[in-house]
Amino acid sequence: MTPQDFQRLVAGVTEQLVDRPLDDELARWLNNTLPAGGTTFRELADACRDGVAAGWLCNREGGGIRYGRIFKALPDTHGFSVDVVDMKDIAGPHHVHPHGEIDLIMPLTEGATFDGHPAGWCVYGPGSAHRPTVANGQALVLYLLPQGAIEFTPA
């Protein structure tokens, strides 16, 4: 797996997200269409684990979290930036999603959750905010941000 292969894999997902509102319906659609344990989920999870092991994903560290933006918002990723984080029983920095955020949760520890969500997808709508939290172990989380927009806040 190379960064270019990873970009093509992610683009296969993001092309299905173009012009869809980021809301609960999208989360349901993603979890039904690209479910945890399904082919696309396994391919993305394997690619993320391989990328971390090879050092081109999660190549930064701060506050006990490994992270990294692998792609800025690009035409090839249909206007979504792509970040991957590696978190273990920790809450990350508070931030706002001006245009929303789509997350793929890939537990590395069985039962690990991200903001209370198990393996699979969660979607935050435009203007939402949170302090991303992995509990019950370790997980990789892939973040898709429309236009790469994120605003870190002191809250």
Rank of each mutant, 00 (worst) to 15 (best):
G125F: 07
G137Q: 11
V123N: 10
V123L: 12
S128E: 14
T113L: 07
H130L: 14
D115A: 08
P126D: 12
G116T: 08
D103K: 06
F114Q: 04
D103A: 12
P132I: 06
P107C: 09
Y124F: 15
A119M: 10
G120Y: 11
F114I: 05
L108V: 03
A135S: 14
L140S: 07
A135F: 00
G120N: 10
Q138H: 15
M106K: 05
A129E: 15
V123D: 08
W121Q: 10
W121Y: 11
A119T: 10
P126G: 15
V123K: 11
G137W: 06
P126F: 08
V123H: 09
L140C: 08
N136V: 00
G111D: 02
G111L: 01
M106G: 05
G125T: 13
T109N: 06
G116K: 02
T109W: 09
F114M: 09
G127S: 09
A112S: 10
P126C: 10
T133Q: 12
C122A: 13
M106A: 06
L108W: 01
D115P: 00
G111T: 03
T109A: 09
A112Y: 02
T133I: 02
S128G: 12
T133V: 07
L140N: 06
G137V: 08
P118H: 10
I105A: 03
P118K: 13
E110H: 04
F114C: 11
A135L: 01
P126L: 08
A135K: 04
T133F: 01
P126Y: 07
T113A: 02
G120F: 13
L140K: 04
D103C: 10
I105C: 06
E110G: 02
T133H: 12
G111E: 02
V141F: 04
H117I: 05
T113W: 00
F114W: 14
L108M: 13
W121K: 12
P132C: 06
G116Q: 05
V134R: 01
L104F: 08
A129P: 02
L140A: 10
P126R: 11
I105L: 07
A112G: 05
A135W: 00
Q138M: 02
G120K: 09
D115G: 10
G116C: 06
V123P: 03
G137K: 03
C122V: 14
M106F: 05
Y124I: 04
Q138V: 00
A139M: 07
E110D: 13
P132V: 09
G116S: 07
P126I: 07
Y124N: 14
I105E: 03
N136C: 04
